[in-house]
Design a binder for these strands. Structure first.
Lengths: 233, 233
DNA sequence: AAGTGGTCTAGACCACTCC
DNA sequence: GAGTGGTCTAGACCACTTG
């Protein structure tokens, strides 16, 4: 056997998906396994890969469905709200946590504050058209934005608040992109099956004077989201 | 929601990895499964996630080992060769295919040529310190670079060849980043286990006059590589 | 030949959704 | 309660590497 069986199944399934339309329901796993004459484990392996690729969406208790194309987000210092609106999607946010933490050495260096100084930790779920697509944890120096708690609306845009209400002018930033597997907590918050590949982004951004603004850890559903970067030599 | 068993195993395994050093060998799956009192399937699920996260590397017939940290590559219009050297790694290339193909509508639009016009298809495996980390397929218009076959050395840098030998000046580009699962062929070329999450990049770049230079499809091992982008407002 | 990871089966039970 | 996807077991065989 050269090609693994589950991959041959994946290939045959893809043909089936092309015939079915977007949003169409796939037959149950057990039925498909019988039709393809493979075990349910093998069928699930094939379905699992197609799910990770963003071609299928499984919903427990309901069934498996043909997915819509991935959302492509800009990789730039722009507002999540405006970026989504530009693509005709309805943005949404839900605050999971808004605490103050003590900055450790790594965070303090990123925010340009002393180790042990207080920092906001703002964790939010990002939605597109009511569906959770990302989990964003933002760290900001309390000393720099002492009034943040008063001016930031729970469902408002953080970038708009920083620029319009607090006079921040974004300059340059750096972002590191990698793939990881979600933890059960993260998967639950994003209503994703466990063990789905995610896109993990680590961002630090500075204002036009070069002063640190924020450090951000963003986890996006790899099956639903991609990113677009503008390249320079 | 109770935590799946394989994830609890993953957490316990991570503690074990911290005690073992980089490059250390893990006990065999069957042994670990007995020690943790789980089935081999559950143990493999945990190992699979740690492998996808880049914490472990499995080698068939040999064993499973604690991995080294990911390589972070720049997301910019720069030479792969120089980017790798800047990080103290030894770059390498291997040409898999160097054909001429007929451009379909999508490719023709990207390259600024007529549909049906000939285009080079150059597929290469990218190595870092002798290990395959990426598979890059580059498309260029034959009409624009008629002498490419003569001036490009099999193990040479394409970017260096374009800039130094053919007088190309890179201007701006666009890159889309997403996660996918590798096909068996791709996994084999990258000497990766099948079904490992990969980073898929689609790049188009233009010269300083705005004329299209190349269209590139790059597939990088998600367990070994990450990317760094510079952000602007 | 022995030992390792890789694939696959058959079957069980759980968690969730909908009727 | 019925049907769906999600997790897990026990066991088998294959493919690869090393001695």
């Amino acid at each position: 056997m050269t090609v693994p069986l589950h991959f041959a199944v994946k290939t045959r399934l893809m043909e089936l998906l092309d015939r079915l339309g977007e949003g169409a329901a796939l037959p149950p796993e057990r039925t498909l396994a019988k039709e393809f004459e493979v075990s349910r484990w093998t069928m699930r392996q094939a379905i699992r890969e197609l799910t990770a690729d963003g071609r299928l969406r499984a919903r427990q208790g309901q069934g498996t469905f043909v997915a819509t194309p991935k959302l492509i987000q800009p990789l730039a210092l722009v507002s999540y709200t405006e970026a989504l609106r530009a693509q005709g999607q309805v943005p949404g946010r839900e605050v999971v946590r808004f605490d103050e933490v003590v900055a450790d050495a790594v965070l303090a260096e990123k925010l340009g504050i002393a180790e042990g100084a207080p920092a906001y930790e703002l964790e939010r779920i990002l939605f597109a058209d009511e569906q959770p697509i990302g989990l964003e944890t933002t760290y900001l120096a309390v000393s720099r934005f002492p009034t943040l708690r008063e001016v930031l609306l729970p469902t408002g845009s953080l970038y708009r608040c920083l620029t319009d209400d607090l006079g921040v002018r974004f300059g340059e930033g750096e972002e590191i992109v990698e793939t990881v597997m979600a933890t059960p907590r993260e998967a639950e918050l994003l209503k994703a099956t466990q063990s789905l590949p995610m896109l993990l982004l680590h961002r630090t951004s500075r204002d036009t004077d070069g002063k640190p603004i924020e450090a951000v850890r963003s986890l996006y559903r790899g099956d639903r989201v991609g990113f677009r970067a503008t390249l320079r030599p």
